[in-house]
């Protein structure tokens, strides 16, 4: 038996909105640690890793480890029916073939339950080693979203370069080219507005903007984003989910043939 009660139900709504474009079907894994997911996009170029820790739920009951295959578009459709202030409870029976989402309005005067069919998904789990990154850039998530959107109107790929000078986002296309440099600025009024660059070694990597733009759907989850880069490794774009965990996107770089 599984019963997970999330007071801030809007978080789950935002999580689904952030990943449903990238991944169609995925297994949600439930254990004593929390509610998690790891899934690749259909071309195996990008991966999303979600963790919502058990401590972040008001009530968390998971009698045995469970893996529930869901179509993320259908799940998003159901969660869209929850109000932004609603409490969301996820319920499932061991060995059952459905999951129930229960929505309670804050004043408890409206209670809805939506039952969704589960599906069998052959998922390929990747082992992601802990890595020391050459550079980690933390910046406002809205700024990162703006940069990806702006550059994608010029080109298809972005070169992200980190040096002592700052982090540079560059693109080239048929109509011309663009460079956006963000310097470290830790002297801003609010910490979430700061750009912080932690660099051990200069790094420069090329990525498809289409995926980066898809990752920025997670912007409503967090005021800041952290971008971890190492030469010759996939980038990690992480949005922390307050008090609960994270959504991490991994993207394989474009490399010389």
């Amino acid at each position: 038996m599984l019963e997970l009660r999330l007071v801030q139900g809007s978080l789950l709504k935002k999580v689904l909105e952030s990943i449903k474009e990238l991944v169609t079907d995925a297994n949600f894994d439930c254990s004593s640690t929390g509610f998690s997911l790891q899934a690749m996009d259909s071309s195996h170029v990008a991966l999303v890793a979600l963790l919502l820790r058990s401590e972040g739920f008001e009530h968390y009951r998971c009698d045995r480890n469970m893996s529930m295959g869901m179509n993320l578009n259908n799940m998003a459709k159901m969660l869209k029916c929850a109000g932004n202030d609603d409490i969301i409870t996820i319920k499932a029976d061991d060995g059952g073939d459905t999951v129930t989402f229960m929505f309670e309005s804050p004043t408890q005067d409206k209670i809805s339950d939506f039952e969704m069919k589960l599906m069998d998904i052959d998922s390929e789990h990747l082992g992601i080693p802990e890595a020391e990154y050459h550079a980690i850039v933390k910046m406002p998530s809205s700024e990162f979203a703006r940069i990806c959107r702006d550059l994608s109107s010029i080109g298809d790929t972005v070169v992200i370069s980190v040096t002592k000078e700052g982090v540079k986002f560059s693109t080239k296309g048929d109509i011309g080219s663009a460079n956006i440099v963000c310097r470290q600025n830790t002297s801003v009024d609010k910490p979430e507005e700061a750009t912080v660059i932690d660099m051990n070694e200069p790094v420069s990597l090329t990525f498809a903007l289409r995926y980066m733009n898809s990752f920025t759907k997670a912007t409503p989850l967090s005021n800041t984003v952290s971008i971890s880069l190492s030469n010759e490794l996939p980038v990690v774009v992480e949005y922390k989910i307050a008090e609960m965990g994270y959504v991490r996107f991994y993207l394989a770089p474009k490399i010389e043939e």
Binding site: M40, S43, H44, V45, A46, L47, E124, H125, L126, G127, I128, P129, T157, T206, A208, L233, P234, Y250, A252, P253, K254, I255, E256, E257
Partner: peptide, 14 residues
């Protein structure tokens, strides 16, 4: 020209 790499080139399948 650069080619899009796949995640399997970096991470192992479990």
């Amino acid at each position: 020209a650069k080619k899009q790499s796949k995640l399997s080139a970096f991470f192992t399948m479990r």
